[in-house]
Each structure stands twice: as C-alpha cells, then as structure tokens.
Design a protein around this nucleic acid. Structure first.
Lengths: 115, 115
DNA sequence: TTGACGAATGCCGATATCGGCATATGATGC
DNA sequence: GCATCATATGCCGATATCGGCATTCGTCAA
C-alpha cells in the first residue's frame, strides 16, 4: 500500500502548501479558478486539480456563475483539525511537558514493579 | 516534481493517521518503540520509520535508556497548525460564511466598476 | 453555427510514500 | 568475546502525488 488517498482526508488535503494558500485566499470571498491560479502563480489546470481535491474533502464549494465557476470556502471540516491539535495545547509549554513525562514515568515504573 | 517531502513539514507529518496515533499515545508520557508498535498493531520497523519522520520535523524527542530508546512528545511544532486552522474559526459557522462571502462579493463588484 | 473564453480532464514523467522483509547496528549481561 | 534483546536501516514493490502540456467540455454572444 502507498500513502492514503488525499481525497476524503482533510489532514492530507491541507498537507499541500498551495492548497493551504487557496483556502487562505478564499477567506476573502468567492473566487473564480483563473484568479486563484494567477494569484498563486500556477497554471489553470494546476489550480483546478487542487480545487478538486479541496472540493472532494468538503473544504470548498463551487457554483456556476455564467462562464465562470466560483469557489467558496467551507471551513467546517477544518474544525476537527483545530480540535485535534488543541488536544496538545497543554504540552506546548515544554517545561510542563517534561514534568508530565517525568510523572508518567514514575507511574509506569510503579506499575511495572507491582506485577 | 512530486509531493513535498514529509520531512521538515509538520502538516505532512501529521497527514499520516498512524503518526497522529503515535503522538496521541505519547501524551501519556515516554514510550519505547516496541510498545508503540504493539499498541498500534504495526511492525517494529514500521514504528521506527514513522518515529523518524516525527523526529525530523521536531514533533518527538528521543533519549537512550539502556537498551531501549524512549520517545517523548514535543508538541510545540503543533502550535502553528493549531493557529493556522484557528484563522478560519470565524468561518466555521456556515451562515456567517455565506454572509461574509456575499459582502466580499459586493465589495469586489464595486471595485470592478470603479476601474 | 461559429468563435471565444473559462474551466475540467487525461496522459505523462519524475519522485515520494508506505508496508514488508531481511539485515545491520547498538547496548546489556554473562 | 558471545548471545540476546531493542532499535534502525536498506531494499523492494505497489501506488499515489504533483506539475506540465494538450485537449475536451461548457457557456456565452454574435
């Protein structure tokens, strides 16, 4: 098996720097493909492909507007990522991290002896 | 060019479900490789490889302890991810999202006319 | 219908990924 | 030294990725 498919996995979808850039741009509102491509210095097919990935994981929506197709941000799927990383917030302070690890090690050593 | 290297990129490092699991396990404190491998139902070489990636991006530290090598969480590099996703917090409420897009579209239409 | 424009798709090449297996490296104790 | 346990590394195969290019599809206007 190789790497998990980027589709249907938000973590993978935002692993690509260009795709993150697209999401950032879309915070300012709907944008057509060409405008995104130009803003990020990439080709139109390139932008379309990244947008497809983002659409398939539900991070963007698209709607037809005449000849154009406007892409809009749908950030709800970003929330789980925010919450997952938030679960590590208490470990960001390194000294606390070290302390916690130390405490846990004591606990484990005690359990080991008990068996 | 192919996908950006997972090394030196935290977003890519946590794109792998098994690596995320490892980080979760390490919240409880230091663990040797074998214990992680067993807990996640993967082979020892498999665990070692994932740990290498996590070490190279700075998400875990290791220290020798006799025959064992204990891996510990270093969650500081997770903070940028948390903050990046947090930048989309105001868009999680979908109705607000739609409203904002609408407002931005009006702005753009006005600017377009002005040129 | 034809032409022009915007966007999506298909194919390709180079490369990276992940898992599995065997093997090497490292540290400990006898 | 030698055996043993813990871990790392190397090689492989199957597959997915990303960028580029050409092409197709879709919509609008004359």
């Amino acid at each position: 098996m190789a790497r998990a498919a980027t589709t249907s996995d938000v973590f993978n979808a935002i692993a690509e720097p260009q795709r993150r850039q697209i999401l950032v741009l879309l915070r300012a509102g709907e944008r057509p493909v060409t405008e995104l491509a130009q803003a990020l210095g990439m080709t139109q097919p390139g932008a379309s492909k990244h947008l497809r990935v983002l659409r398939e994981v539900g991070l963007v929506r698209d709607r037809k507007a005449g000849k154009q197709r406007l892409y809009a941000l749908d950030a709800r799927k970003l929330r789980p990522v925010h919450e997952w990383t938030g679960g590590f917030e208490q470990f960001w302070n390194e000294s606390f991290d070290r302390l916690d690890a130390y405490v846990q090690d004591l606990k484990r050593a005690r359990q080991e002896k008990r068996r």
